[in-house]
Design a protein around this nucleic acid. Structure first.
Lengths: 217, 217, 217, 217
DNA sequence: AATGAATGAGGATTCATTCAT
DNA sequence: TATGAATGAATCCTCATTCAT
């Protein structure tokens, strides 16, 4: 009989495994997001992410194939939110014109950028990561396709408005946001307003008469 | 490869010091430009630059404060060329409108981008270097100021066209170029043409009647 | 590849426990053998073994104390086969000489090496694992003892042939095999033949006259 | 009549810089040698080498392309010594036979192994490094070629003794040394003696009469 | 002025093993 | 018994910059 045995007290676990896992992933993404906002994508290191999330570095590789994939996951998470916001706001429009379509969409983006500052860093300027870059391009093309479809269905745009042109408009919108958030942590409102004007001016070149005068919803 | 790295044998000098100095700087910049084009700004290392230039790493610090300043010098060199090209091409216009002004300027940019591929990498997308970033912004503002001045003097633009707006136009033009050169090593011509349309559409909102109809030079 | 690694869904069980256990062990050993052949002992990881066997990593520690013991088990499995082959082939000799003894034994080894390529990696060259190393030495000594006993009983060898000498012969034979399988996936036949000559030449120094002239069985 | 050619041609200079450099290289090699002897090739890490040499890890990469090349350099250093020893000892023989040739050569090897314990680890068993492995094989082939040439010129060996056979003899000699140094830090003398017998027995199969009876030098 | 050498700090990633369930 | 998840420790290697000559 051992004289003294220190009984190990098993730490209790209350949260189910899977839930816990998901939470860890979120913590890591949140930590990465914070660091990206504070110090930029370039100086983002796995060590720092792990430390900021209070997790060992190796854990990071439990959930993500590598650093690139973590960043990608971060962008994807925010993009889903972005898409949802755009859809919701478009549903709320009561008078459709090219101008209201552009304004609504761009302001939806802005509202998500407000909530997700890391997104600005990663998605708008994160040019240092091939996967995110590619994903960003694809997302923009997807956004452009959706809007184009919407605009054509609604009778706002003429057929000359090709996908390539719509995509250009979205990309240019990105640049506006980038500038607006560079100057101002909350996105310079004047610049954003001017950006709406810019994109609208361009797209109106391809508008139907109704796209200019308006269609009640 | 030898198992043990052998020390380098110093080359002999024949060219006058000052001349040699200047040449070295150019060699370093050229080497950096080549590497940037081939492998991107992010993976540009001082070692590689030095090696590609056939110079010792320490030399680099003889001529530049640090890596950032080397990149800056590279951008500056190309920007001077850019400015000269714009000035020259603008001087050759025979009918001034907002559209010809935009077109001439943007095509001047394109022709320099053709000659200076590294510029595309560093200036258009090189978001990894604060100094270059800042310099790029400033250069764009300078370009915008010059063009604005030119346009107002020529009676093409109304006073509502502020510097902020002109700068936005230039920045958006940058994004167009970035996209055009991403798709196509020589800059997708269709995309560039569409970019000209886009910038023109925007600026025409602030045009005088003459800015639309034209002024013979 | 998905950005976020999704947790695995546990497979259902249908086979009796014990049977399943044994099968798992074999699967793990087989997987390890395959990996060793393909990529060498050094780059063999528990993760890879488990994955290749379609088992969770932790399972591995259910059946083996650690990686070293898994490798040991693998070697043992093949060595049993080796011993059986030698015994069987020796039983088939019809004229005993030192030379036929050596030849039969060595060719028995070769036939097992053919079937068990992983053995070549682990046992002949796997110098990276203390347990296997030790086991290999011991096995060679055992083989040597058996053969020595056999040879002395049969009147082929003089008493000067000590165990140490016999062991040396076996070890040297190993080196021959190692070389032969390095050159040729199937074991360079010329080299093996020459190895037989070599070992025979040595052992004949300790042969009885009958060991040279032959004893009908 | 150099029996073994030394293929080393490092361009030397007398600048203090390079002297210091050379010393550093030696220190690193010495440190690596010590560690290899103490803990084996497998557990040799760049960190440990650097620490043991009192140098930062980065220094290591100043002199060697990578860890593999460091090990290679270590082996090369010792092999040069080995070749020199063999050449010297062969020059001292006064009665040439296959047996004295084998004995002299093998004892020359042993004397270097005594001085260079790390060599045993790296060269004889260091099967974990492709570069060293390849180099070892090549060195053995070179040694074999030189000895073969020597033996044929001296009239000790018949033409049937091909390079492949001579190489086999050398490789088998390696295995003997490996065993001898495994048992005994100074190389089990009995085992070495027996190894000489073994290699001699094999090579005498290809000896001329003079190779057996002896040629006075 | 020029440069070979040196280096501290940090990079991403992998590993064998153990834990809690 | 089985296993998904977790992790401390270690891996090799690179980099921008500075030092000593």
């Amino acid at each position: 009989m051992p004289a003294v045995r220190t009984p190990t007290i098993p730490p209790k676990r209350r949260v189910p495994r899977q839930e816990r896992s998901r939470r860890r992933v979120e913590e890591l993404l949140d930590a990465a997001a914070r660091l990206v906002v504070d110090r930029g994508v370039e100086s983002l290191s796995t060590r720092d992410i792990a430390q900021a999330a209070g997790a060992p570095v190796a854990s990071l590789y439990q959930y993500f194939a590598d650093k690139e994939h973590l960043l990608l996951a971060l962008a994807q998470r925010d993009m889903a939110e972005m898409d949802a916001q755009v859809a919701a706001d478009l549903a709320g429009i009561d008078r459709l014109t090219v101008e209201t379509l552009v304004r609504t969409t761009m302001l939806a983006f802005v509202s998500v950028y407000h909530r997700r500052r890391a997104f600005v860093e990663i998605y708008l300027r994160g040019r240092s990561n091939a996967a995110v870059e590619r994903f960003g391009r694809e997302h923009n093309a997807r956004v452009a396709a959706n809007l184009l479809d919407f605009a054509v269905q609604a009778g706002l745009a003429r057929p000359e408005l090709t996908l390539a042109k719509a995509t250009l408009a979205v990309e240019v919108g990105d640049r506006v946001f980038q500038l607006a958030f560079e100057h101002d942590a909350d996105g310079d409102p004047g610049l954003i307003e001017e950006g709406i004007t810019l994109v609208t001016a361009y797209l109106e070149r391809y508008a139907t008469p109704a796209g200019l005068s308006g269609i009640p919803v």
